[in-house]
Structure formats: C-alpha cells, structure tokens
Write a protein that binds this DNA or RNA. Sequence first.
DNA 1: CCCAGCTTGTGAGCCTGTGCACAAGCTCCC
DNA 2: GGGAGCTTGTGCACAGGCTCACAAGCTGGG
Lengths: 222, 222
Amino acid sequence: MIPPPPRPLPHATVARLPDYLRILADLANVGEDTVSSGRLADLAGVNAAKVRKDLSHLGSYGTRGVGYEVSVLLDQVREALGLTAARAVVVVGAGNLGRALAGYGGFEERGFPVRALVDADPAKIGTVVGPLDVRHADDLPALAVELDLRVGVIAVPSSTAQDAADRLVAAGVHALLNFAPALLSTPAHVAVRRVDLALELQVLSYYERQLRLAAPDTLSTS
Amino acid sequence: MIPPPPRPLPHATVARLPDYLRILADLANVGEDTVSSGRLADLAGVNAAKVRKDLSHLGSYGTRGVGYEVSVLLDQVREALGLTAARAVVVVGAGNLGRALAGYGGFEERGFPVRALVDADPAKIGTVVGPLDVRHADDLPALAVELDLRVGVIAVPSSTAQDAADRLVAAGVHALLNFAPALLSTPAHVAVRRVDLALELQVLSYYERQLRLAAPDTLSTS
DNA sequence: CCCAGCTTGTGAGCCTGTGCACAAGCTCCC
DNA sequence: GGGAGCTTGTGCACAGGCTCACAAGCTGGG
C-alpha cells in the first residue's frame, strides 16, 4: 500500500524506456515469454549492458541464466513511466499540423487518446476533425475538468505558443508537448518537451554532409 | 578555393546550432546588428559559456567587448550546418501524418521545401495535397533525379518503414527522417534521425509525474 | 549431486559535455 | 594617451553516461 518511492531515473534511461516498452509489447503479441538483454538490445539498436543497467534502475529483477519475463517487464516499464492509466490529450491549434496530430492514430495506440481540439480562431470553431469538433480555446478550463485532460500539445505558430501554454497551465494541464520553435516560460511544476521538426531536418542535414564528405561515393546499384 | 575542412562538431553543439540559427534570423529581422553570448543564451535558454564554446567550435570569431555580428554569425551557422542551399524534401506516405507534413509550412520557411509526396497505395495516387499531387512510390527514382530530392521523410506505418527507407536509399536519398517507431537498417553512408511522437508523450508523462510528486501543489491563480 | 553453459547485475575506467572562472582583448570616454 | 567597462575564448574540474569485463547465480542434463 506504500505508493512506490519516486526514485529518479537517469535522463538517458527515461528516453530509452519507451523503446523497450514498444518492443516488449511486440514480443508479448507474438507470444514470447522471456527475453534476454542481448535480444532486447538487438531489437532496440543499443548495447546489451546498457539495457541491463537501464532495467536494473527500475528495480526490475530478471533471472540469471534465463532472462526477463516479458509480461513482468512490461508492467514494470509501464509503471516506471507512469503509464498505468491512459492520459487524455488536448491539441491546441487546428491548423495543418494540429489537425493531423489530432487525427494521428499513433497516440491512442500508445495510451494517449486525443479527446479535444481547440483553436482561438472563430472561423475554425465547430469544424470537424475525425471524431472531434474544434472547440474554442476559451473553453479549455471547462474541457480540462470534463474530459480529465492531462497533456497539452501545442501546435500553433511561435507567436502564440506562449499564450497557448499559459492557457493550458491555467486550465490545470501540466504536461506540454510544444511543436512551435519557441522557448516557453512556465511554472516549475510544469513539464515541457519541445519537438522541432525543422530542427531535426537541419541536424540531419549536417550529419548527411559529414557522411558524404567522409565516405566518398558508395553507389547503390539499381 | 580550398573546400572548408570538414571539421567534426560535438553532437550536443550540432543539436543547438539550429536554435541559434532561428534566433539569429529573428534578430536580423528586427534589425539587430550585434548580439552577445549572454543575450543569445537567454533567448535560447542555455548557459552563456555554452554558447561561446559552441560558436568557437565553428571557428567563429566574435569581438571582445562587443559581441558577435548577427549577419556574420548567421552565415557561419548556416555554413556549418550545410544549409547554404535549399534541400528538396520528399514525404513517403500520404496518410494523416504524411499529408500534414507535406502541407506544413514550417519546413519550407527553414530551407526544406517539400517537393514530392508519394505512397504505395494506388487509391491515393493522384489525390491532391496543397500544391502537390500524390505520386506512386515506384516513381521515386525518377522524381529524385528530376526534383533533386535530398531528404526523405518516412511517414508510413512501422511495418512498411523499412521498405520505404530501402526505396529512398535506392533512389539516392541519403538523409532520412523517420516518424515510424521502428529501427531502420541502412547503409553506413545514410544519415537517419527518428522522431517518435508517442515516445515524446511517454517521456513527458514521466517527468510530469516526477514534478507532481516532488512539488505538491502550486495552484496557478486565475 | 555436480558440472557446463547461459544470463544478469555491477564495479571500474573512459569519454563527452557542462559550468565556472579568468586572462586576453576591444571600445569608448576623459 | 590611458584607464574603465564589457565581452570573448578557453583551461580546469566535475558530473553523467557508456562500455567492458567479470563475479554471482540459475537451469538442465548426466
């Protein structure tokens, strides 16, 4: 009955746990009962020792000589990430990106159902996106309570991203995924993560050139 | 006339350069001539010493007592990232996410115009998304040459992500941005970067709970 | 019962990245 | 000309993360 002590996990480990989670779910689906750190490592594309150390951080005990039990590990990783219950998501911004994210099936599949889509532009209110209709951003506080919204996805232009964040925080949403290329200022108890798609392309661009200049031309034969 | 020596930058620096680039572009737009590391650091949300060390890596010389000249720095960061010319992007997968990414204005703005959208599903061929019409994935080799495609965005389900990657590589596209939650195997000279949106939500979920358990309740006054 | 063969969990060393603090150097004003 | 006031560039020490290598421990067969 003791609520599990909130042990802090290394950042690098936290970033890998969702990968393990997905792989374990796949393994469970094909009926695998146990898995070794070596196999997990292959599937995740990392070092086997790293897998073992990651798993040891969450107190997970495998069995020497055998490996880990898939179902047990699944539960432990879910618990460590705090994914025991689904968390309702609200998307702010019904533009191109916002509508796509709201309709993207990949979220619900992994425990994050999108339950609301809001915008500040009156012209967009009431338009329908899949099973959702666009609501006004002013309704956020009411929606947050009614739908138990836990995560806010910010898909508005940079210029209004801070405003969107403020509204979400005021409505009691304390986990924000920000797609705008801007720095948000939020209270200390709010978790923010930024995803900048153009940034990814720019970084990619750098490494592509590095590889091109390093290894001259390996022509792919058609 | 010597092509600039391909000095390898620290990964952490590469990841921050696009942020500096965006901030510098904004500063240039509002007519700022010079900027100090301190100001850049504030705008980027990082430590000033880190900014200076990052910039020193690309041989950029500021002026002591004054700061950096915005226009010069802009050019240097662009050059370091290999963004001297626009790079044409092809999106593979005309589903929900693919169509949104193809229509997302944020790419073109930052030097990555989406010039093609392909899919393997015959039912989708010919449908129109903004200024693009969906082409068949078999046309990739021809399109790659015709449009000088440099970057491939993979927006297909995990099950076909590897196939999409293979087709792109075969067509001569050596920079891949993968939105599918799957590990791709590619030749050594191909740069791959993965963006997993559900993973971001899961990581966010972890930190949100950490913060909640650490600092009980700081109610935002409305 | 005992041994061979795996697999986990972890200690040790290394490497990358961070932040501090300071010398070097530029500019402007008196 | 000289000095005050900034700001850059960097040496240094530290923290976090990664990999190796190995002891501890389980299982199954003879």
